[in-house]
Simulated scan of single mutants.
Amino acid sequence: MRIVADRARCEGLGMCEAMAPDFFEVGDDGTVTVLDGTPGEEHRSAVLAAVDACPVLALSLDG
Rank of each mutant, 00 (worst) to 15 (best):
S45W: 02
D36E: 14
L59W: 07
D22Y: 11
P55D: 11
M15E: 15
V34F: 04
D22A: 13
D52G: 10
T31C: 02
L48G: 10
L61S: 02
E11N: 14
D28H: 09
A53M: 12
G12Y: 06
V47W: 07
A8L: 02
E41M: 04
F24L: 10
A53Y: 13
D36R: 13
G63W: 01
L59T: 08
E17W: 11
E25T: 14
G40M: 04
G37R: 07
V4R: 06
S60C: 00
D52F: 11
G40V: 04
G30K: 07
F23E: 05
L35E: 05
I3N: 06
L57W: 13
V26C: 11
T38W: 08
A50R: 04
I3M: 03
F24P: 02
L57G: 11
P55M: 10
G37I: 06
V56I: 12
F23S: 04
L35R: 11
V32H: 01
I3A: 04
D6T: 03
D6H: 03
G63Q: 02
D36G: 10
L35T: 08
A49E: 14
V34M: 05
D28F: 12
L48A: 15
D22M: 13
F24C: 11
D28R: 14
H43P: 00
S60I: 01
V51Y: 05
T31Q: 02
L13M: 15
V34Y: 06
F24S: 08
D22G: 14
G30M: 05
T31H: 07
V34R: 05
V4H: 02
S60R: 07
D29N: 09
G40I: 06
A5K: 03
P55T: 10
C10T: 09
A49I: 06
D22F: 12
A8D: 05
V34W: 05
A53S: 15
E25W: 13
I3H: 03
F23Q: 04
R2K: 07
D6F: 05
A49M: 14
G63N: 00
L48R: 14
L48K: 13
M1T: 05
V32P: 01
G14H: 12
P55K: 11
V56A: 08
I3S: 01
